[in-house]
Design a protein around this nucleic acid. Structure first.
Lengths: 187, 187
DNA sequence: CTCGCCATGTAACTCGTTACATGATTTC
DNA sequence: GAAATCATGTAACGAGTTACATGGCGAG
């Protein structure tokens, strides 16, 4: 047993991913597969993971009795394990939600590319930023659609979608400014 | 030698961090220490790293002759190695800038907390989102100040700062919407 | 004279990804 | 009957962090 395990056991600390998954099954019970898809689509602007991280984490959460699973026949496919919260899990989640978050961590190479845009011919740079803009436009439409299908009854999911909308709009606005400045710059 | 090394050597591929560092010394020569600070402040919204990743990466870049170092006496402290681009490095960087980027990767626990805000008493939730807002307000002011000190002569740095401004404004706007909705919700 | 910043470096560890594996079901 | 999606799992690997380590210099 490692030192970090002892610390975790003492403080009752779990790694971020576990809380992400708890948050994912809080609003509705989900399978590992569904959680993965949910994070990659609805939650790409907060936290994205591969399924290979999800399944082991879920098993640990269940072992600690923070979640419980129920085996259900797949609607169109094999059976899946649907996980739902336990009382202990809800307490853990509540405690986490009440805490402060570290700053969002972002890895965005595109901004660094723009930093060096004077290395490219104007037309190449413009073309690239147009593609990036188009990509974020697609994302924006996805979040707008999601926003439209949610009401204030599901306040949490609505606000998450809303964040997607605002984030993508801001990114698109930036792309437009970049395109403007590049077009305007001395060749 | 690993398989990935062979592939890299064949394709001339480097890991993202290396390009980030190349981009960092492109506009002005910098030391490892300065690159670290620069990424943590000016570049926190694109790419953040610890110094322990930076120094080894710089040595590899120098070994591959993509950058070169010059030993200079520290202005207020010990000597440092200032790295600058080589012709080969500039070519590498240009090729990278011309490529497309993967989607920005974001890890933001706060959005997931908001997803579960109905676990908290209204006042607690409001308090938390106010703190988050304040934090982003500080960041916004930093980017605004940076924006103000840059001209269109340094188009790259200006556009990077501009992205910081727009991103923080969008985050603050979201915080305000969250606060509004929480305040309005049935207790 | 101590604290904090400048400046660089290494080792252990952790998290998550990529790649490998399996197999059922549905759609074309 | 081939391809795509559903569904879960493991092993090897990689990138980066935390923690450890060192030392000069300036400010209070």
């Amino acid at each position: 047993m490692r030192v970090s395990d002892l610390k975790e056991a003492a403080a009752g600390k779990e790694k971020p991913l576990k809380y992400v998954l708890l948050a994912g099954i809080y609003n509705e019970p989900r399978s590992g597969y569904e959680l993965t898809k949910w994070l990659q689509m609805v939650g790409q602007h907060c936290w994205s993971v591969e399924h290979s991280s999800v399944y082991p984490a879920l098993r640990e959460l269940e072992k600690d009795e923070l979640i419980q699973s129920e085996r259900l026949p797949g609607t169109r496919g094999p059976d899946r394990s649907i996980y739902s919260m336990t009382a202990a899990g809800l307490d853990k989640l509540r405690a986490w939600v009440a805490n402060g978050s570290p700053r969002p961590a972002i890895k965005d190479e595109q901004i660094l590319r723009v930093l060096c845009f004077d290395l490219l011919p104007r037309e190449t740079a413009l073309q690239q930023i147009r593609e990036v803009r188009a990509d974020h436009q697609v994302q924006l439409e996805f979040f707008l659609a999601r926003q439209a299908m949610l009401t204030e009854r599901q306040l949490g999911p609505l606000l998450v979608a809303r964040r997607g909308v605002l984030a993508e709009q801001a990114y698109i606005a930036w792309c437009d400014e970049v395109a403007d400045m590049i077009a305007r710059r001395p060749a």
